[in-house]
Each structure stands twice: as structure tokens, then as C-alpha cells.
Design a protein around this nucleic acid. Structure first.
Lengths: 244, 244
DNA sequence: GGGTGCCTTGACGAAATCTTGACCCCAGTC
DNA sequence: GACTGGGGTCAAGATTTCGTCAAGGCACCC
């Protein structure tokens, strides 16, 4: 059902029969976005929190997911990860703060695009169309396993192994390792790690980073005096990667 | 907390040595964006029309291009296409109207991101950083590693090697070397070094610089009488770089 | 309601690093 | 050839930074 005037030429046709899932805790926004998507020919479902989002992603099996970063329950990043573990949908993340983009990109969330609030529905639609136009092959989550020495990091499965032996990490520990290992050899300041792992709106002491790094090291069997994985750059931050 | 002003800016490190091209026909906007990019460590060039943009993209070989859609001469879309035909740069398009996004994404222009005017420079920077960080596009831009004689300086990893052999430097030592090597052959007064390395709010004796330079030289294996790397300009300051 | 796991905070000690001051040397100058 | 100021060197004390530990709190699960 193409609306004359409002709907750009390409849209209606291309998205006919596709399903979209909108996740946000603000009903008006959900409604607005949904109506735009419907006008494009999408069949739309919506959720207001993270748990429901993951559920619906599974049951409804959408082709496109518009996902807010800030959600009650499990947050957008975690929801995105979980959904990505079973779904192949295109995911657009909504963020209220520009700085959060770093987080989405830095952590391996699996999002395909992001857009900052406030945004115009037209822009969002343009992004969605652009994504759909992108060949699926762009989805190169194929072999994302990283190696650091005898360490094996699988961001998709959120698993770490040391010489084959699985190591159990907490969320924060894994995220730290994730961010650090995504760019080996690059030094991350504590502030950067806070921003990436904790989020831009964190207000607290840098010191938490040290503690979690210590715990991470302990689990990895890493000696701070002679670290094989996570090394300290005094006065600056931490780094992972090849031996010096 | 770290010493004020001392902490490397998140962007500064990562973008050090990278080149950016800003294209817009409004000089104030060009100036604003340029200054932000420079603050992030970019070397910046600019153009006011499409032809010049394509020219500069070729000659200047930028890593990032900020490109306005509306331009005198060939417009942004066409310029983007032409540039894309030979350049590997990240391209952000600026649009005044949201609807234009459809055009950018609809036509295969090859832009990597787009942002609508008015935008905050901070948002643009976040996008640029995010683009540079995108894992899939492993850009082969000129190595961010600097060379001074047989010295190899990697600002991102904060590593220094001399003929392949890693050299351990403290924070201040590395920062000094970083500042000096960023602009080879340029003489830095002690005060300038204090400002850049220690931060603007440092109040203390210039003499610290001497001491740290001495330590740095010692670690680099440099003889003050016949320095190969850090040379003293009596009565002025220090400098690094090629013979003369 | 009790337990468990995880995160945050604060305190403390050890180690690395920085700053200061004293002293010496040398180049440039008279 | 002596003088002078800038710069090099050294070492000791001051400071910062990091790693560790443990207590408290919160959320979640049974």
C-alpha cells in the first residue's frame, strides 16, 4: 500500500512481506516508528523491554530490528548480543548519546547500524532501506574468533579458552577482554575502557577498572609482573597483544 | 586521577598522523570542523567545491573525508563517486535535509556515513572515530608508525623500538618522544614541552624537562655530545629529526 | 527468606616514577 | 685564559600508581 507523496519510490515494494521489530520503552516512539515501517510494507511487532525483545526476535523472526540502547531489564547491548546469537536480522541501534556509538562499535554487539536520538523517522527509514539493500554477505560474523597467544576469544559466543580449556568470565571481565582484544596492541586509557564497557553515563572511580583487570588476569592465569596477555602501561592504561 | 592535561585524549592518539579532507562551501563551517579534526590529531586540508575536492582527495590522499552534499560545480554525490573510484577513504556526507539521505543511500555513492545539518561537531567526531574503528574495513593507510633513523615509534601501542629491539619508556619519556617526533626538525622550547606533556596547568621548574630528556637519551642509547635522535638547541630547546 | 554471585568501594603496601637540588662540565664570550 | 650561563648528571626524598584484599550492597535465584 503505497502512500502517494510520503513514501519514497523504492520503499513499499522492496519491503513488502518483510517483518520488523521495534523495541523501545517509549510507546509514542514505538508507535511512530511502527507506522512508518508499516507504510513501507513491513509487518511490525514491538516490545518495550529487553526480555520481550529477545523473545519476540525468536518467535516473530523479524528481518529488521530497531532496538533502543536504554531499556528496562536487560539493556540494548545485551539484548542485541543475545538476538544476534540466533538471529540474522538487520539491527539498528538507537542511542540517546553520541558517545554511546563508541560502545556499540567497540563491544562486539553485532549491530549493523546506529542512529542517535532525536532522529527523524525519515532518516531511520533511509537507514533501514540502505541496510536491506546491502548484500547479506556483509554479515561477516563468520569467523570472529580472536587469538592472543594461546588464548581464544569468541565474541559471538562470549567464550574464552586457554589452550582449549574454557574459562568462565563475568560480563564485565569479558567485555574488557573484548574491547582490548578487538584492537590488539592499542593502549586503552581507563576512561576509554569505562566509556566502552560501562557506558558514557558512568560516574564513578577509574579504580574499578583495576579491580576487574586484576580479576580477569587471575582467571586467565596472568601474572601482573610478567603479563602474557593484559599488560599495564603505567600512567596510561592497559593493552593487550603480542609480546613487546 | 591522572595528571591533568597529561592524559592522552582518546582521539588524539588514534588519529595521530591521519589526514582528513573537509569539503564545504561555507568557510565558517569548514573552519569549525577543521579545528575539531586537528584537535583529534588529524592533518587537515579543505576544499570549497567539487572539482577541488576530487583533486585534493587524489593529491592529499586523506584517510577521512567530510563532504557536503550541496556544492558548487559537481555536487557532493558525484564528487563522492569519483573519489570512491580511486580512494579508500572513509567518507561522511553532510546533508541539510533529511530526505537527502535517501539520495545518498539510494544511489550507490560509496559513502560510509552521513549526518544531517545542523550537527554538533562532537557528533561528527564521534562518527569519525567510530568509522575509523570499524573492524571490517582494515584500512591500509600509511602506517601510523613513525621512523627516526633506526627508531620506530608507535603512538597507538606506545611502543618504541631501536633496530627492532623494544625499548621500555616511562610515560613522560614516551610523551616527550611522541611530541618531538610528531613534528620532526621542529624545535620545541622547554615551556612548550611542559605544556604538551605535563599540561597547561603545570607550575614547576623547566629543569624537569632536562632530566627526562637525559633519561630518554640514556634509554635510546643517545650520546648528548653527538646526539643521533634528540638534539639540544642551546638556549632554545630540543628537537628531533634528520641530520643537519 | 536465605543464599549466591557479582560489582563497587575503600584501605593499604610495594614498587615505579617523578621532582628537586647539588654539582660538574662545556661552549660561547670578553 | 678566565668567566658565565646553560645544560648534563646523579642521587635521594616525595609522590603517584597499581595490585591486592576484604567488606558491603545489590540483584537474582531457589
Amino acid at each position: 500500500m503505497n502512500q502517494p507523496g510520503n513514501t519514497p519510490r523504492t520503499g513499499g515494494q522492496a519491503s513488502a512481506g518483510l517483518r520488523a521489530l521495534v523495541v523501545d520503552d517509549e510507546p509514542p516512539l514505538v508507535k511512530l516508528v511502527s507506522s512508518y515501517l508499516e507504510r513501507e510494507g513491513f509487518q511490525v511487532a514491538s516490545a518495550a523491554d529487553g526480555e520481550r525483545a529477545v523473545e519476540l526476535a525468536r518467535e516473530f523472526d523479524p528481518d529488521v530490528i530497531v532496538l533502543d540502547l536504554m531499556l528496562p531489564g536487560i539493556d540494548g547491548i545485551e539484548a542485541c548480543r543475545r538476538i544476534r546469537s540466533f538471529s540474522n536480522a538487520y539491527i539498528v541501534m538507537l542511542t540517546a548519546r553520541v558517545e554511546e556509538i563508541d560502545r556499540i562499535v567497540g563491544l562486539s554487539t553485532g549491530a549493523d547500524d546506529y542512529i542517535t536520538k532525536p532522529f527523524s523517522p525519515g532518516e531511520l527509514m533511509a537507514r533501514v532501506r540502505a541496510m536491506l539493500r546491502r548484500p547479506r554477505t556483509t554479515r561477516d560474523h563468520a569467523s570472529p574468533v580472536r587469538h592472543v597467544g594461546d588464548l581464544e576469544i569468541d565474541p559471538g559466543a562470549r567464550e574464552v579458552r586457554r589452550s582449549g580449556e574454557p574459562i568462565e568470565l563475568t560480563k564485565i571481565e569479558f567485555d574488557l577482554l573484548d574491547v582490548l582484544s578487538a584492537e590488539p596492541r592499542v593502549v586503552f586509557a581507563r576512561e576509554q575502557l569505562l566509556e566502552r564497557v560501562w557506558g558514557a553515563d558512568w560516574f564513578g572511580d577509574d579504580h574499578v577498572v583495576d579491580v576487574h583487570i586484576a580479576n580477569l588476569r587471575a582467571k586467565l592465569g596472568d601474572d601482573p609482573r610478567a603479563p602474557r596477555y593484559v599488560r599495564t602501561i603505567r600512567g596510561v592504561g592497559y593493552r593487550i597483544g603480542d609480546r613487546t
